[in-house]
C-alpha cells in the first residue's frame, strides 16, 4: 500500500480502551448478511448459511448475526463495530469457503477504517528517559575535570595526519644522513 496515497489515511496501530489488558472484548457487535434466495450470485452465501452459520454463531456468541433475504439483489455483508464503525462488503459470486474467510476477517476487525500503518508496532510513550537537556547523556567523569581541557578541544572526527600514519607504520623517522 503506497504511503503517498491521498485517499488512504495513514496512522498507527491502536486498540480501543486498552482492549486485552484487563480482558479481551471482541469488537464486532453485529453482522448482517443480505442475500437473494434465488439468484446464483448468492449461492455461496446460501451455502454458508446452510452449512457453516450455526457453528460460526456458536463460536462467536458476542456477535449478533442477522440474515436479510431480499429479492434480486447481490449478496452483501455489513459488519458493525463497538466504536461505531460500519463496514460494507460485497459477497457477489463467492464460494462458500470465500464467504467464510471474509466473514471471519470482518469478525476480527476493530472497526477503524483501513489505513496504511506507518509502523507495525506502536507505543504511546516512546521515551522513558525524561526531558532532554544539554546535559543529558554527558559522561559523568566530566564533573571532575577542570576546563579548558585540551583533549576535549579537538574535533571528534579528526583523522590522523599522513606523517602520524607513517610514523605509526615505520617507527619514528631516523636522523637524516648528511647528503653526499
Amino acid at each position: 500500500m503506497s504511503q503517498l496515497s491521498l485517499f488512504v489515511k495513514s496512522g498507527f496501530v491502536k486498540a480501543p480502551l486498552a482492549n486485552g489488558i484487563g480482558r479481551y472484548v471482541p469488537q464486532c457487535q453485529r453482522m448482517t448478511l443480505k442475500f437473494c434466495l434465488g439468484w446464483g450470485n448468492s449461492r455461496g452465501v446460501r451455502d454458508f448459511i446452510q452449512h457453516d452459520l450455526i457453528e460460526f454463531v456458536k463460536q462467536n456468541p458476542g456477535t449478533v448475526m442477522y440474515l436479510k433475504p431480499r429479492r434480486h439483489r447481490s449478496p452483501v455483508l455489513v459488519a458493525e463495530y463497538l466504536n461505531g464503525g460500519r463496514e460494507w462488503f460485497s459477497l457477489n459470486d463467492m464460494t462458500r469457503e470465500e464467504v467464510y474467510k471474509w466473514v471471519d476477517l470482518y469478525r476480527t476487525k476493530a472497526g477503524y477504517p483501513d489505513m496504511h500503518f506507518k509502523n507495525y508496532q506502536h507505543s504511546d510513550i516512546p521515551s522513558i528517559q525524561g526531558y532532554w537537556t544539554p546535559f543529558t547523556n554527558k559522561p559523568a567523569d566530566r564533573n571532575m575535570l577542570e576546563f579548558p581541557q585540551n583533549s576535549l578541544n579537538t574535533p571528534l572526527n579528526l583523522k590522523p595526519s599522513t606523517s602520524e600514519i607513517i610514523s605509526k607504520l615505520y617507527g619514528e623517522p631516523q636522523e637524516q644522513r648528511s647528503s653526499r
Partner: peptide, 22 residues
Amino acid sequence: PRYSFVDWNYKSELYAFGKRLS
C-alpha cells in the same frame, strides 16, 4: 437510531452484550 432498522432483535443484542463482556 440502529434500533429503528428492520434487522434488530433486542433480546439477541442483550444476549450478545453479556457474552461479549464474558
